[in-house]
Design a protein around this nucleic acid. Structure first.
Lengths: 214, 214
DNA sequence: GTCTATACAACGATAGAC
DNA sequence: GTCTATCGTTGTATAGAC
């Protein structure tokens, strides 16, 4: 693969990534991606036989860059592992602010838009979510001695992801950081309650179990 | 407006509502809506000049039915106000289960998909979110004497919405109720910690305030 | 209010020269 | 690998008779 080819491919992925993030997958036309990338139709279809293949490449890009380029930026300068988590959340806050609520979490957007209709895409969405959860779980593990012994740290990490995604969704709709800050604040309050030494943790059963799934 | 006309209009809104919920707004074609509603193109455009007008009508439908038809169903048989909240969340769990993760929260889906590009739609999304939060806040108010006096109950209600939306997003992507149950369980744990009499509540400041918005 | 037929643009995707 | 030209389909929306 020549350098020029790599450049073209990379430009297409970047352009598609940005447009999918702002407008979503279906609202973004191939022609729009071509114009932004300054690439011609023939080249795109040389690398990506279908639009879905391009989406897969975008999600592979996120998978390969989420750790170093997206998460570490916000957490590197923080030493306390629990504060690393909040620094990460603050990264999303900055994103919302910087792009005036036009951007939130790209994975979350795509998840709701294509997970029903594009099965091949779903597994890459999962990989991205899992990497995020792995990172947060890692931070929680670093601070394990400050939490109750019986705390399910992975479950808490998943919960933090859910809260972030929900907070981003509301912030984008309200076009206000207040709802996002609110979600983060409650999360911080919860975590501080967990941090109380000697506290015990027990996840209650959900209201009505229909059936245990998976 | 004749009865026949009302029927046609209602059929169109119902069909559009269902299809938007499963497939999203952009993935749903007018022709698909027409087929499902068994209505012809001319009739649709008689009632709704554009596709966006149909979307607005769908969101108005949710606005007018969310209270009695969607929320009350799940909470009516529960007496304890705090448990009403969890019964409500369980309603979403049932929905995820019943439709095999093809459906979650219709408002949340549409929020991420169209909030950037359809400003007129955004205010109706807000109305729906606000109604939901109002209901939950009402339940929290009913149980006010069991919570710390200084608890910001509306903020907690918003947080519950964010958690539900995030949990639904993850459940649909993972195609598993586990992640949803997880979010609800952590929420229950948090609320039980708040319920401890004599406990005080204080929302910490978010990590880095960029600027106070709105 | 409803019908059928159709306009017209945008869509994803392809062909074939270079 | 890249170019231009274009295919066939689907998209939203309209026209005009009834």
């Amino acid at each position: 693969m020549s350098t020029a080819a790599t450049d073209t491919r990379a430009k297409l992925i970047e352009s598609a990534r940005d447009l999918f993030m702002i407008q979503g997958y279906h609202s973004t036309g191939i022609s729009q991606i071509l114009k932004r990338a300054e690439v011609n139709s023939g080249s795109l279809y040389y690398f990506f036989p279908t639009k879905e293949d391009l989406l897969l490449a975008v999600l592979e890009w996120y998978r390969d860059h989420i750790e170093d380029d997206l998460l570490a930026i916000h957490t590197a300068h923080v030493s306390d592992p629990v504060e690393k988590i909040f620094a990460l959340l603050d990264g999303y806050r900055q994103m919302l602010h910087m792009f005036e609520f036009e951007m939130g979490c790209p994975i979350g957007n795509l998840a709701l838009e294509v997970t029903n209709t594009h099965p091949a895409v779903r597994s890459l969405l999962l990989v991205n979510f899992e990497q995020w959860v792995d990172s947060v779980e890692g931070f929680l593990n670093e601070a394990a001695d400050r939490f109750p012994e019986d705390l399910d740290r992975r479950a808490l990490a998943v919960h933090i992801l859910a809260t972030m995604e929900g907070g981003v969704m509301l912030a984008r709709t309200y076009r206000s950081l207040r709802v996002f800050d609110n979600a983060v604040n409650q999360l911080r309050d919860y975590i501080e309650r967990l941090l109380i030494i000697g506290s015990t943790w027990s996840a209650p059963k959900s209201a009505t179990k229909i059936e245990e799934s998976i």
